[in-house]
Nucleic acid binder design. Sequence first.
DNA 1: GGTTGTTCGTGATGCTAATCACACATCGGG
DNA 2: CCCGATGTGTGATTAGCATCACGAACAACC
Lengths: 238, 238
Amino acid sequence: MRAPYGLNIIDNCVICPVREEHLFCNLPLPAVQRLNEIKSTAVYPKSTMLFIEGQQPRGVFVLCTGKAKLFTSSSDGKTIITKISEAGDVLGLNATISNRPYEVTVEMMEPGQANFIARDAFLQFLREQGEVALRVAEQLSLNYYTAYEEIRTLGLTSSPSEKFAKLLLSWSPSSGNANEPAHVKMTLTHEEIAEMIGTTRETVSRLFSDFKKKQLLQLKGSTLIIRNKPALEKMLNS
Amino acid sequence: MRAPYGLNIIDNCVICPVREEHLFCNLPLPAVQRLNEIKSTAVYPKSTMLFIEGQQPRGVFVLCTGKAKLFTSSSDGKTIITKISEAGDVLGLNATISNRPYEVTVEMMEPGQANFIARDAFLQFLREQGEVALRVAEQLSLNYYTAYEEIRTLGLTSSPSEKFAKLLLSWSPSSGNANEPAHVKMTLTHEEIAEMIGTTRETVSRLFSDFKKKQLLQLKGSTLIIRNKPALEKMLNS
DNA sequence: GGTTGTTCGTGATGCTAATCACACATCGGG
DNA sequence: CCCGATGTGTGATTAGCATCACGAACAACC
């Protein structure tokens, strides 16, 4: 089966090759089968907005492949990216559960597949499958902690350089020797990084130069090499 | 019955005079009765910390009287107040449910009474009383939205004056004519206000002078009079 | 009523990052 | 292959706040 944008569609969750890796997808078989019946699958091109902050919730999306950015904006155009979502993430959960407007906008950063489950069907699904309701609670609580982490970063971390260090560390895999350089594929523009740490494009540019000069990191094409994790950690304060 | 600190204790939730006004207290009678059995009531003096961020959750507190501030701090002493809690608020809910460390510290701002329910008993209580579990979900989801509001304030609101205006508006009662001055009892120090909007004590001091000069507000003892709500609203951007 | 501690007002100073401006690099499509 | 769009590097300038440093007001408590 072949979709536009050159991506294969896997529209059967039961045989999804990456099902078990994802919190919300790795459900008991009966639940996955039921999920499979009520979802609708589509491939979305880059820059599609799955939903927009302020909209009444239509339902949830489960990202199957690709990446999406979650952000909120003010009326004067300032934007803050709160999260980069990857395969397996459930989007719009809180709004759907509580029937309050979506609190973020979700935009595809690259073409990718997502499953959509309409609100009514989803709520019914939760009532039927107690196990899934638990997963949802787990996920909601996780979201809340992530939000608090963000509050701490925005409110307690004063300097852009500290926030930048924090971001780099969040990218660096926790596994592996702390002193060994970590290689990370970088897919974000400076502008987007700026929107993640609440500063300007120019400042991010300067931060990269600065950190390169201090031997903290290195760039090979679009691969970011984090050379001195301990030094980055020493820059933090929270 | 008379407690230390000159406050009366009401240790029976069933006859609590303000029970019906509070989301979590206004439960079906059997639930309130059960709640009453598993809680322990105490009056805490000013400055008591009910719990501290990072601690393993022991259980939840329901604030019955008094006020408490919720805040998180960085290791270098910077503090950000995320909320002022009042009677009826449930504290430590998310941590208790998810068994993750408390994400904030809660400190009494004035002497007040609170009920404590230990984690095990609370979880058991939820299992028994489906109605209450729903309230909890509702509350969690509300907390999440509040957290997002905070993210928006911290991340999108650039200037202290804008954040200050936002704070003033959040104090001003939504009822009543928009153009009529609103009277609000102010119990916070400039330092605390600074910690709420992420700036310094001195800047808050100057903001007060400034807003007074611009006829936006007025102070009569500890009563704050908000004189020009529309003008404050015009200062916002989100 | 005086002593002690907290809270508040306000000036002077300096730094940091936003803003503006512009040239260069890179990418993708016709 | 060229051309427009999008992204990046870096200098110059400046506004806005944090910081430091007081002294005054206020409250609380022997």
